[in-house]
Design a protein around this nucleic acid. Structure first.
Lengths: 256, 256
DNA sequence: CGCGCCGTTGAGCCCGTTCAAAAAGTGTGG
DNA sequence: CCACACTTTTTGAACGGGCTCAACGGCGCG
């Protein structure tokens, strides 16, 4: 019951034991008894409205976060004001690690796209948990490696692919990641999609003007339909071929 | 000519206790007594000649590696034959992690640029070590996060910077990383540099032809001199300004 | 010597950008 | 319901950075 309500609008504090993103996220390897004690490692839960920041470049870096609901993105703003999106964040995703582990300042910012709820873990308590429960540390390690592999994939995209391919690739990836968070996402061909063309441009290293042109074209060819908060992909295979997308690459999290 | 071989050339089996890259690498947090027992976690040491592969895309993924000497690069080969370099590897660097931790196949390949020596750690024994010594696991975590941050930096480069900036940025980064491995690297303005223009192109997402043109230009302007296995940067500040390079960002490893 | 690899140069083209402006949502308050 | 402001998407015209294709010179090596 609490579970059902969480999916819609978690305005109240969520207990780890009944958190619906747990099977996807940091505490996946914990047994159900352990989960209740895990509660103590979390410091708070926070809601951020669309366009708001979870943290900004230059902020003190003292915690990591799990996204409980909504969409967000991690980005760097360059000196000339240009922006590069480095990651899109979906429910269950863990973010906010930095090499210094709690002593430095944020190199990147995380901005909410929709309204989001985040769960806060101070570095200190997270480290304590890792020391006490090595299998959590191992799981953490593998989550970060997965992030790195994703970043490598994006690098190859930006370095060696055309605009069409980059956009197709990104949309397929987000489509798959969003599907993996649905109860029975296999047969779905339309998802809620709060991503603007400007965001796509900032992720793909293009101008929003050119993104508009290319997407218009992809639309005409019947490869995808995007707009009004929805993304429809009628034929994944055809788009995947165009984009050189490898569905074999494991995605960040999949529902159990 | 001076340090044509970085410090020394370990042709014989190196013991962890006397390994010169240890202060930079995986076993940094170990005490000297621990180091001798750490020896048991390492399975072997391997030498690869220039152009040879430490592993290739599709290989079984069973170990991680520490680079003991030489230069290498990690890259992905796309379906159309194009290549994207994802990381340059210098002595002390750890590489070879994948999310599945020993069960999947390699998504990327690691190729030797110069002759290299690598130290092999099977996943299993590494995991055992992490369970027994949590501070090693924490150090591992922070090393991988640093790699991810580096990858993010490259993403921003490829997405939002011009060819001049990308090349300048890459050369400065490699320059700094190489310097950090020298005994007194602060005052140095020339390093051994076994990187061809084709490699730079594959890292920056450009053609080697265009790299040649841009570097000719940078050379004419007195910003750098690159060739014959050496890189000379007379005025770091000027180049850094051109490239939008932030020296504040912490590099992978620095000599103690 | 021939062969490969690396760097260089030139001519022409194309993808994506820049600049400018209009059209089509979207949300707010009257 | 409309008026208004704002964001998002679309369209057009012209420019240019980086690519393609092709050829050549230098160097190391068997």
């Amino acid at each position: 019951m609490a579970n059902h309500r969480l999916r819609q609008e978690p305005t109240v504090l969520t207990r780890c034991g009944s958190c619906w993103v747990r099977p996807l996220a940091l505490f996946q390897p914990l047994s159900s008894e352990e989960t209740e004690t895990a509660q103590q490692y979390r410091s708070e839960q926070r809601r951020i409205e669309p366009g708001g920041y979870v943290f900004s470049q230059g902020d003190l870096s003292r915690s990591v976060f799990t996204l409980l609901s909504g969409w967000a993105h991690l980005h760097e703003t360059l000196l000339d004001g240009n922006r590069q999106i480095l990651q899109f964040l979906l429910p269950g995703d863990l973010f906010g690690f930095q090499p210094e582990m709690g002593e430095g300042r944020r190199l990147y910012a995380v901005q909410a796209i929709t309204a989001v709820d985040v769960c806060v873990f101070p570095y200190g308590s997270l480290m304590a948990m890792c020391q006490e429960r090595p299998h959590v540390a191992m799981h953490l390690l593998s989550m970060i490696v997965r992030d790195e592999v994703e970043a490598f994939g994006h690098l190859a995209c930006l370095g060696r692919r055309s605009a069409r391919e980059r956009i197709g690739h990104l949309l397929l990836e987000l489509f798959d990641r969003a599907c993996a968070r649905l109860p029975n996402g296999d047969r779905i061909d339309t998802i809620d999609f709060p991503i603007t063309q400007t965001l796509i441009a900032d992720a793909c290293g293009l101008t929003h003007i050119h993104v508009s042109r290319v997407m218009k074209c992809l639309n005409k060819e019947g490869l995808l339909q995007c707009g009004g908060g929805h993304l429809h992909i009628p034929d994944r295979k055809r788009l995947a071929e165009l984009a050189g997308y490898r569905p074999t690459r494991k995605l960040r999290h999949t529902c159990p």
